[in-house]
Design a protein around this nucleic acid. Structure first.
Lengths: 365, 365
DNA sequence: CTGAAAGCGCTTACAG
DNA sequence: CTGAAAGCGCTTACAG
């Protein structure tokens, strides 16, 4: 229990240097020092000679303004809050990294809000972020996780979502699913495939429908009929954490479903190119195809979706659709920065920013 | 540019409720309200009836103390800084998640400090953390990345490292490498393997030597001579990022080296169980062994190290040594909490906390 | 048991 | 061009 009221220098005696310390040494008032060192526009108000003396002194003493005091006085915190279901999930960890990288470019730091740790954490994190005075919030919590997005937007209008939260006045960045389907299919067609299969799970999701539209568009572009696409509509397998230790959602597709996909698309409909719902399904398909004596890409080409970490490691390395997390992060950061600069614009209109994905070619297609 | 000096409620008009607001409504002074709502020991000083009135009012008005003001007054920030080379790296992303989870349990939030974004970021992050008054810092930046650890420890004594930073007064948590080798080998021996191979990269690293000691200990425990272990000492392949987008270090082992490993360990020395340096090497070996007509685990069993995400997805699924990131995170958080509680104990002794890894059995061994 | 007052480090009108 | 003063929201001795 620290007796001193010196907050900086955690667990340390070392006196933190303040404006007044510099002011004394420079023989001027704190106002002058403040305006020279931290002043927004107003360091022109100080005589050049005085200003020089002050900046030199500040450098010598290694002066750092106290963000705490500045914030209490009404300045920005230069902190963004980041709501994430689980920061360790490789699905989003790259996005976390890129968001923080962009935040740093904007002179900000990122505060983690891990919402999947316990029930009610989403709302609790929002309250904490707001009371800490964050400048804005990124919400990259997947829609399958609970959390009151409406409350979030009320408590902090400067919020940018990853994917559509379904709120009338939300700002969000999303991946263009039509383009995702179109690009995956176009790659298959360009490399000589003629009959395409789409193994889709959760066909009810709009993302799936958009990808079908995209695949058909790719066929049309090459003058092929939409009937050259066969869609396997399956259900998710059991969802469970990858390891007892982790909270990652990994969708485990049972062998029966994999066999159904292979039976319908490859054997029955003679598809020579398959677009898989995601890299996990693709990776499972790769294994199952081998087990059944079908060669990839010899007999059938496979394209994944996510361009996930594991693509490099499966056999053969998986061609996949990259979601361009860095571009997403840039767009999200830019959006929040604009909201901050524009000030409290209540009743803001819904704004959707769309990112076009890219195909990363490896060996499977 | 906000005109008001109200920091909370980012980009929002909504007046934040303060102690004085409650004080007025309750007809008492701020001192009383403060001691009831935020007071450490001293809420016994207030009459129960008054206290009740105040707490009710606080709940009604949804009062939240301003951490900024509290911090300026000398209270803890309840923020931990987290130095990480790249938060998106799946090697550490789980550790990031677990550290934050533990921080939340201790009533703290985590501020990210991404040190690999640009040169000098490590030191810059340290300064920012210190000036923001973090209560402690976790440094999980891998030793191959630059960063002045000594300065870090000086600026913030309440720092806990993941892995030995090689400083005389550092507190750190590390994985027991002897146990890692011992457990991997013990599993192979228990499942009927008799001649072991260890494919080690960077043999100069102490971690590698410790693992050799562990493997030999496992042999001895079963009454086998240490000569039943054959060590392949190789060099790292080229290190490069997995994707142009990411800063992850992935060690790419060229096919020639993989062939050398197989030639020496499997063909020449008839090893039937291989301990691989890490999951990436193991995954590459799996592919190469298949290409050369050797069955896993039929002809040779393979054990990885990391229990990385991809273990589930390679073919066959990889048995691996789990580094118990959650236990590591717990130990790190507990250590920093103790440092905070004990107060500024300069000249603290070097403290090493060792975590014993576990074998996670899948199909490859 | 309660209140008035000082002060954490800074910014920002307001006077000179 | 420069300084004295008020105040951000809170805590903490110190008086009553």
């Amino acid at each position: 229990m620290p007796k001193t009221a010196t907050p900086a220098a955690p667990g340390h005696r070392r006196k933190t240097v303040r404006l007044i310390d510099i002011a004394k040494q420079a023989g001027v008032s704190v106002s002058v020092v403040g305006s020279v060192l931290n002043g927004g526009r107003g360091n022109s108000r100080v005589a050049p000679a005085t200003a020089d003396r002050i900046t030199t002194l500040a450098r010598q003493l290694n002066y750092r303004p106290s963000p705490t005091a500045q914030q209490l006085r009404g300045k920005r915190s230069n902190v963004f809050g980041l709501l994430v279901a689980s920061a360790g999930d490789p699905l989003t960890s790259y996005l976390v990294e890129h968001l923080d990288e962009e935040a740093v470019k904007h002179g900000c730091q990122t505060l983690i809000g891990n919402t999947a740790v316990a029930p009610g954490r989403f709302e609790a994190c929002v309250e904490e972020f707001v009371s800490r005075g964050v400048d804005g919030i990124f919400c990259i919590v997947h829609s399958i996780f609970p959390g009151d997005r409406k409350l979030l937007l009320e408590r902090c209008p400067n919020t940018v979502f990853y994917c559509d939260p379904g709120l009338p006045n939300a700002t969000f960045v999303e991946v263009d699913q039509v383009a995702a389907g179109q690009k995956a299919a176009a790659h298959l067609l360009q490399t000589g495939r003629e009959r395409l299969g789409f193994a889709i799970l959760d066909p009810a999701q709009p993302a799936g429908k958009d990808r079908v539209i995209g695949i058909k568009a790719a066929l049309t572009e090459r003058g092929l009929p939409a009937s050259q696409l066969d869609v396997f509509k399956g259900k998710r397998g059991s969802a469970g954490p990858l390891r007892p230790d982790a909270r990652t959602i990994i969708w485990d597709t049972p062998d029966e479903v994999l066999d159904q996909i292979i039976d319908q698309l490859v054997l029955q409909n003679r598809c020579d190119g398959i677009v898989a719902n995601d890299d996990f399904l693709a990776s499972a398909l790769l294994k199952r195809l081998r087990k059944r004596g079908l060669a990839v890409p010899g007999d059938v080409a496979v394209v994944g979706y996510l361009n996930h970490y594991l693509c490099e490691h499966v056999d053969p390395p998986l061609t996949s659709v990259d979601l361009r997390h860095h571009a997403v992060a840039k767009a999200m950061t830019q959006a929040v920065q604009e909201m901050i600069d524009e000030g409290p614009a209540l009743n803001r209109e819904r704004q959707a920013i769309s990112i076009k994905p890219l195909v990363v070619v490896r060996d499977s297609a």
